[in-house]
Design a binder for these strands. Structure first.
Lengths: 296, 296
DNA sequence: CAAATCCATCACAAATACCGATATTCTCTA
DNA sequence: TAGAGAATATCGGTATTTGTGATGGATTTG
């Protein structure tokens, strides 16, 4: 036998635990008492454990029974989730919502929307991917994500529908021990050139998305956190989103770097919520998009 | 009908997903192909969704099907835990192991023993309680805990058998505003289940990384840093390496969460592992005690 | 002490799940 | 391009599972 455990057995078990007796459980479940009794009996039999102490007037849960009731609740909750997802699909929801977020995008502004989302669609499986610059766009075109929260440089591509959400200001920074930190004036192209620039790049297509390159020597990183390690270690300079470095600057662990004729827009880079034109958002995706636009 | 979803249907579904065809699933499950076909047919019918695309030679999972297969795996895993607990009991194990730890108890070396415990008894539900100084002792005398890890001042009472030990660590954490942060005792699976767990997963094969899943609801992340953002935002709980969260904990931006296999006390005096004389330890409890004494 | 409630057991009936055969569609190879 | 092999849906018959209803023993309640 593959496995003879039945959800029905578990439903009966927890119902008994809830209402306190076999008979009452029978009434609640619309079955005769003997059916309940037999169901529990076969459950005990197959699992080889004793769930109830039958010596008294009404059966009481054994220690084992108590624990297994809790386990059963988990199984049933899980099963309910299965049915919940199915129901969502039946009512027009997408089966899951995949969200891709580029690494430079701050999470904070999205958390409220997302917790509202999980309230509005409690059974919707949500997944996130953050996998390097350009990852969101690639996944959008892949159809492996429904929504991308990303930069779109130099411009919004034709096949993408995008809504601007917010801007992140970028700040060039360097560790205090680095030569550029002691410059004492705005850095020119000449100043920057000899030093290593720590750039984020698309892991799949390292040649793309290299905006704001100023140095000749650069090291590529896919992971923002790892780049930060190297930055703090005085390995080179780079631009970082302001929200990630402001406390580090305040603590003196990083020094802001002023660049002459910096091509990076003063008001910051625009973060878009995007989806592909040819695959419209599902109900939940649309909801999230609307909510984001309303909030931001 | 109370609920007509069947574990058998789910077993059939995931088997098909694994082996790739109805016929092969039938062979694997020892059933005729038509039985498989009918099972899936009724499952689709009852849930009101289309799981397979039947136009081709062999049915292929729809998007909905793919998601529901993952959900089904979770349900089956949960069911397997149920049966695992039952099996443990059948083989003489205690149905659960309750461990009480006093709040002042430091905690370094417990984690190795406990992860060894969860390896030796993978389905044993373990719960921790921490509820004030003297709580362990009270629970021991209550018979509501099997083992107490506690201070015993001024001396070991007569009714208690106690062995002096030392310390441990690994970190489940949650933001201060999260409900789990206000639990006030060790979290059991039942406590965790309703809350979102923030899990790291393989972006290529999101189904693979389901180790350590305790909640039924979880959001997947590829990126550790982004997960941390959501964690700090109070979105859910997760386990984090201690070196990454210790400063956050110090800042009060995170709260450590004591759960089943991850106890997290701090510094203290002489710590004993204790149990009452008149209720000898079960198999797993004895195992844990021996392991602790061997290591410390 | 009587009435009511609860549970286990048993035989029978109903539901349901499986099997085997068949028709059809698709893939792969000669 | 034809033919063999394999996959699936459908259908009727059978077998197994599951629920019913009645009965008897035990406990609580008033």
């Amino acid at each position: 036998m593959i496995g003879s455990l039945t959800l029905d057995q578990l439903r009966v078990l927890v119902t008994i635990a809830d209402v306190g007796s076999f008979s009452a459980a029978g009434r609640k479940l619309g079955r005769v008492q003997s059916a309940i009794s037999q169901t529990i009996s076969t459950l005990e039999d197959i699992q080889g454990v004793s769930l109830f102490e039958r010596s008294g007037y009404r059966p009481i849960l054994t220690d084992t029974g108590r624990v297994l009731v809790e386990q059963a609740r988990l199984v049933l909750a899980s099963a309910a989730r299965f049915e919940g997802v199915a129901k969502g699909v039946r009512m027009g929801l997408e089966p899951e919502l995949v969200i891709a977020i580029d690494p430079l995008v701050p999470s904070a502004p999205f958390i409220e929307s997302l917790s509202a989302l999980s309230l509005a669609f409690p059974n919707l499986p949500v997944s996130f991917s953050t996998e390097g610059l350009g990852g969101s766009l690639r996944r959008l075109r892949n159809d492996s994500t429904a929504i991308g929260i990303c930069l779109l440089l130099p411009a919004v591509p034709d096949d993408i529908t995008a809504y601007p959400l917010l801007r992140v200001r970028m700040q060039a920074v360097v560790a205090p021990g680095h030569p550029l930190a002691r410059l004492g004036r705005a850095a020119t192209q000449i100043d920057l050139e000899p030093h290593v620039q720590l750039v984020l790049s698309d892991p799949i297509d390292p040649g793309s998305a290299n905006f704001g390159l100023a140095s000749v020597r650069f090291w590529r990183f896919v992971d923002l956190g790892r780049r930060l390690d190297f930055l703090l270690g005085g390995f080179g300079w780079c631009r970082m989103p302001e929200h990630l470095v402001s406390t580090l600057i305040r603590d003196g662990r990083l020094v802001p770097l002023c660049i002459e004729n910096d091509p990076t827009p003063e008001e910051g880079l625009t973060i878009y919520a995007a989806h592909t034109r040819n695959r419209p958002l599902g109900q939940a995706g649309q909801w999230l998009l609307d909510d984001l636009r309303r909030r931001l």
